[in-house]
């Protein structure tokens, strides 16, 4: 019974950690816009937290460069298992328009495993919410 309680709580209230790793701010602001009254992901029980040790979902926006790849890996490793990574925006997927720039390593999946990819430059809040919900379905399969 206790196990079931934990499983339910995890599913009903996933906590979210957002990390901007080299994005142009477009996607970050859209992630923040998801939390505000018009889109309101808090109705799914999602809370934006600042501490990686509290988080279940990891939203990453932007390209990876050599300096922030360390921070990204560090945050990922601090998160408790099970965890879901959602990469947001063209830059997070592949490097986008910046993939040829000299200081860009590439997409988020070069550094950490990614579960859900959300395309768009920048990704719209609807797409981000859809990505988060898809991530939650996968989370459900992992938990059970």
């Amino acid at each position: 019974m206790f196990k079931k309680l934990i499983r339910n709580s995890r599913m009903k209230s996933p906590w979210l950690l957002h990390f901007d790793c080299g994005s142009c701010n477009g996607c970050d602001i859209e992630v923040l816009a998801c939390l505000t009254p018009v889109y309101d992901v808090e109705r799914f029980g999602i809370i934006n937290v600042g501490n990686p040790m509290h988080a279940d979902l990891f939203l990453v926006t932007g390209t990876v460069n050599s300096r922030n790849s360390m921070v990204l890996r560090n945050l990922y490793e601090q998160m408790p298992n099970p965890k879901i990574v959602v990469a947001i925006g063209s830059c997070g997927l592949s490097g986008g328009i910046f993939r040829e720039a000299y200081n860009v390593v590439g997409g988020v999946d070069k550094i950490i495993p990614v579960d859900v990819y959300v395309p768009g430059c920048p990704a719209k809040p609807e797409a981000i919410i859809d990505g988060v919900v898809t991530g939650l379905q996968k989370y459900d399969r992992i938990v059970n």
């Binding site: 790793c21 932007g62 460069n65 720039a101 200081n103």
Partner: peptide
Amino acid sequence: LGFVHRGLEKLSEIRDFHQMVQV
């Protein structure tokens, strides 16, 4: 600084001046 540095000024060497608007 340096966590967001992409070096996009240098992209002007491979993109032409119309494409740079998008960059």
